[in-house]
Nucleic acid binder design. Structure first.
Lengths: 157, 157
DNA sequence: GTAAACCCGACTAGTTTAGTCAAGTAAATA
DNA sequence: TATTTACTTGACTAAACTAGTCGGGTTTAC
C-alpha cells in the first residue's frame, strides 16, 4: 500500500470542486492556486479522475471541471482508487499465494487491515467532508486569502 | 504512509520468533528458510529491531535471536515502527502546517485515518497472532515441509 | 481569431525498496 | 586454542516510483 501526495492531492482537489460547485465549472488553474498543487500535476490526476467518470470537463473559456455525480455518491476510497493508489496492504493482492502458492504467515492480518482501511474511506463521502467544521473553516480562509490578494501565489513552489 | 514488504517481513519474522520461541534462540538462517526472506535483508531488519529492544541476540554456535519481551507486550505497530515504516498518512507529520503553515483542506481526514490504522495495529500483539487458527496452520505447514525436506529452498528467489 | 481552458505524451531528478557483497567480531565447543 | 557458527556493519546497486516539468496540441466562448 502507498498513500502519498498523489492520493491526497486527488482528494483535496475533488473536495475543492465540491466546495466551489455553485460557481459553475472550476478551472484547474483555480484549484492549483487555492490548494497549491502544480497545474501540470493536476492535469495528470484529472485525466484519471475523468476516465473513472468522477468528474466531467467543460472546454473553452470559462470552462473547467465539475463533479459528475452528487457529492454524496463519491467516496474518498473511489478517488484514491481512481488515481491508481491501492489501499491494499497485502503483498499478493489478496490472492493468498504469498508463499509458494500458499498463504504466508501474516496474510490474514494484512487482509484484515486492508478491509478496515477500505471500509473507513468508503464510508466518507465528499458531501460528509464538506459538512465538517474544520473543512468549512479552511475553505473560508482559502477563498478570502485569495480574494484579498494576500497570498503571493505566482512563483511559490 | 508506506506499508511495503519491509514492514511485512519484519512482522512475519517476529511472528516466526514467537512461534518457535520454545526452541531457544532462532537463527536468521532458519527464519530465512521458513519465511523465504533473504538472509542479508533479515540482517538489516534485525539490526533495527534490536536497536528498538524488540529482540535480543545470542552470538556463537547455537545462537540466534529471541524476543526481548513477552509476546503479549509486542504489538504489530511497534514492529513496523521499528523498521522505520511510518503509519502516518498525513503529509505534515500531524503538525497541521500542510499549507503555508496552516492546515490543508483534508488534514483532519488523514489524521483520523492514521489514528485508526495505528489503533488497529497497536491492538494486535504477537501473542494474539500466535493464537489465530490461520497462523497455526501455516506454521505447522512451514515446519513440516521443512523437516520433510519437501521444499527446495536452496536457490529459490 | 484569439485567448482560455482542457488534453496528451515524453521526459526527469530524486528517493526508496529490496536486496547483494565483503569484511569483519563474538562466543561456544572440540 | 582453533574452528566454526552466527551476529554485525557498511558500502553498494538495479529497478521502480513519485512528483513533478515541458512542449505541444485541441476545443470553444467571445
Amino acid at each position: 500500500m502507498r498513500l502519498t501526495t498523489k492520493g491526497r492531492y486527488a482528494v483535496t482537489a475533488m473536495l475543492d470542486l465540491a466546495l466551489n460547485a455553485e460557481k459553475g465549472p472550476i478551472s484547474l488553474a483555480d484549484i492549483s492556486k487555492r490548494q497549491e498543487i502544480s497545474l501540470s500535476y493536476l492535469e495528470q490526476l484529472f485525466a484519471k479522475l475523468r476516465q473513472q467518470s468522477l468528474v466531467s470537463s467543460v472546454r473553452g473559456p470559462g470552462g473547467g471541471y465539475k463533479l459528475s455525480r452528487e457529492p454524496e455518491a463519491i467516496s474518498v476510497a473511489q478517488i484514491i482508487d481512481a488515481v491508481n493508489e491501492s489501499l491494499d496492504v497485502t503483498n499478493c493482492e489478496r490472492q493468498g499465494n504469498c508463499q509458494q502458492g500458499q498463504q504466508c504467515l501474516t496474510h490474514h492480518l494484512w487482509i484484515d487491515l486492508s478491509d478496515r482501511i477500505h471500509a473507513f474511506l468508503s464510508s466518507i463521502s465528499l458531501a460528509s467532508l464538506v459538512q465538517q467544521d474544520e473543512v468549512q473553516e479552511v475553505s473560508v480562509r482559502q477563498n478570502s486569502a485569495r480574494e484579498l490578494g494576500l497570498l503571493d501565489v505566482s512563483g511559490v513552489q
